[in-house]
Design a protein around this nucleic acid. Structure first.
Lengths: 228, 228, 228, 228
DNA sequence: TATGAATGAGTATTCATTCAT
DNA sequence: CATGAATGAATACTCATTCAT
């Protein structure tokens, strides 16, 4: 045993084995945090329960560190890939969205999304906010900036709400991935992921684009009497 | 091995008291299914644990029946309200979406969404499918039919994908409600719910509307070399 | 609905500790199966409740395994001790009966008999049948064979019912052990165990022995009018 | 409501309905005391749990009173039927045993025996002793007196142990009834109840009868070296 | 480092018992 | 008299956590 200061949250000298982190992340994601017994994680990792406690302080600590390590800050990568890009903004947006769409299509993403929304959001709000900040929020921000740029360049309508538009397309694709791809709603209403992506992005870009049409309708109804 | 009677083990003859179903639904929604102790439900309903077992067979039975009874099939109502409507399709769509948006804004909806996506989807898949069929799926179907109608009437572009467009706007608004309104992401990126709704629906309807512009870009990139 | 592993839910790899099996057997025998709290067993074994569940799946499993392991197939042993015996059949029978009588006199046998007859027979019929097959039934068979042998050799009357005679003496001694020795009826009608044994076996052997007397009475009354 | 003094152990003014006592006795006998839920008794009697508490103070009280009332002091009856009898003692004995045998053959007797031996003996020893005093013990006493009478009259051997002989035949028949008739051991070793009775009684009376044979063997072995 | 064994606080579930109606 | 509803103490069972080896 060396003289390294004991790390604050475990006894292990080195970093926890990847296999444990992986097993924890996947088991939690698959069955949920509460529904997962530590023994399941241990089994999945090929060790015994006790070993977990050599590296982690508690079930919570295990989840926390598994999430930290496993979570890919996808938008970070994408943004970096984007700086050198020379293309119309709409093409950049499509490029960005395709990247994240592919990420969301990953079989491991759906369960993780469920874990985040379903349990982490309530039981570990801070963790949830971290995930959100690096995921959805950063996605929205990135896309939002591109929309802004499109507006500046005259590529998009000047009266577009860049912020909300970005949230809309990011949320729309994300929940479609979650519900239709991962949660089995495709069985109830089948649809090809490629078509979902293409049609959704087409719709989005059309919505942004400069047109010659008349205003669609007035919004004056919003405060109208038909609302309860 | 036991001589338990074959009849259902709950004893209540009449339907379970509303207060129990309410308390169960809300407590489960608020804290999650696994994280909720039956005693919490009992406390919330002002009874004791034993009373729950007078009406329900198990925690699972309680959840099941609470979900069945509490869940409002919102789209059903909306569709009925729509049959008499005489208006441009875009107005109808805005009307429908406003209705569901208001529903999703309800403080009780967010937790229920979390419960459904986070735990029910994994632990009680059949229940989840029922919810989905009456919620998101029916919403998509309804909006999809309206988009179709708009296309027929020449109000919308003939090349929009009615199905996917509907999913997009329903998913987009739903997840924005969940994340930005209920899960506190508004703190990270503040935004007024009214603005979210208006801008999202504007964007959507713009996306559907007939335009005179050229196609924004080709989709030829999809199979391009940047994909993994 | 749960994600429990399909493998048996007890975790112990090796066989359960003797002390647990012993404690379980004795506590169940002493107080009865239903009346025994798992904590009593745990206390008797000097462990905590949780430890029981490390080795056993349930209270039922604990009983089952305790009975399987603790039960001594006494007649098996006796039969083996008998093969070399050269003696009059009546002596062999007395030898056999003395062996089992001593077994039934053991302070642990009475409670076990009660457990078997009182609860196991109803709640775990298969277990009961196993016990019976190795206990009373095997005893009857063994003694029955000896009686048969005695008849062949001319030592016993040729008109005795070997089968039923064996059942009679085995049942008679067994229930006297249970009621008079273990269940305290000796308090109501005191009698020395040795005397019970000797007199009972004498009576039995007399009953079997060849005599010169006339038939005691006719059995013609059996279907007579005094029956209901 | 009249002014009768509240009876010590219930609120009912009149005696408890037979149907309740019957249901209790039979349910307890069938499933065991601990294993029986009061609701089962109530169901069997066609009332609700609450009604039981109008007549009885507790589950224990219910058992106690059900046993008191249901239990037939069979030997009492038999003894009375016997006083006028003019016949050889052996005939009287056969008569008595046939009566009790018939009683023990009753489908309700087996479960009651089990209840007594299995649970009442441990949980309510006083009750058990009452049952034993009026059942087995009285039976033994009665038969014992007859054997004594037979000895006096020279009908039976003078060296017979009247007491133990009586216990032997009563125990023998009783346990055969319990095990072979009621507890299903007949499946393992089939035998007709009539034959059990006849052969057992024949054997018994033979054992008692005066013979010309030599002593079967000496008892000197009892303290011999083969005992442990 | 890792394990097998054990712990104990917690939780679902049961059921005898009560009581207003 | 009897019921339906409810109670609450008891009890089987679970599982995160500990620890000697």
């Amino acid at each position: 045993m060396n003289y390294a200061v004991a790390s604050p949250s475990s006894h292990g000298d080195g970093p926890p084995p990847e296999v444990l982190l992986d097993a924890a992340f996947q088991t939690f994601a698959a069955h949920g945090y509460r529904a997962t017994r530590l023994e399941e994680v241990a089994d999945a990792a090929g060790v015994t329960k006790g070993a977990i406690y050599y590296y982690f302080d508690s079930k919570e600590d295990l989840l926390r560190r598994a999430l930290e390590t496993r979570h890919r800050a996808i938008f970070q990568e994408i943004e970096e890939a984007l700086v050198t890009e020379r293309a119309p903004v709409s093409a950049k947006i499509r490029f960005v969205l395709r990247k994240v769409w592919q990420h969301w299509l990953d079989p491991r993403w759906g369960p993780a999304f469920r874990l985040m929304v379903g349990e982490v959001s309530v039981e570990f709000p801070a963790l949830f906010r971290t995930w959100a900040a690096e995921g959805p929020i950063q996605g929205c921000t990135l896309v939002g900036r591109l929309v802004e740029e499109g507006i500046q360049r005259g590529e998009f309508r000047s009266d577009v709400d860049a912020d909300v538009s970005a949230r809309m397309v990011v949320s729309g694709l994300m929940l479609q991935a979650a519900l239709h791809v991962h949660l089995g709603l495709a069985q109830l209403a089948p649809c090809d992921p490629d078509r979902i992506f293409d049609s959704s992005v087409d719709l989005f870009l059309h919505g942004l684009s400069v047109t010659h049409q008349l205003p669609i309708e007035t919004r004056s109804k919003r405060a109208g009497s038909e609302e309860r």
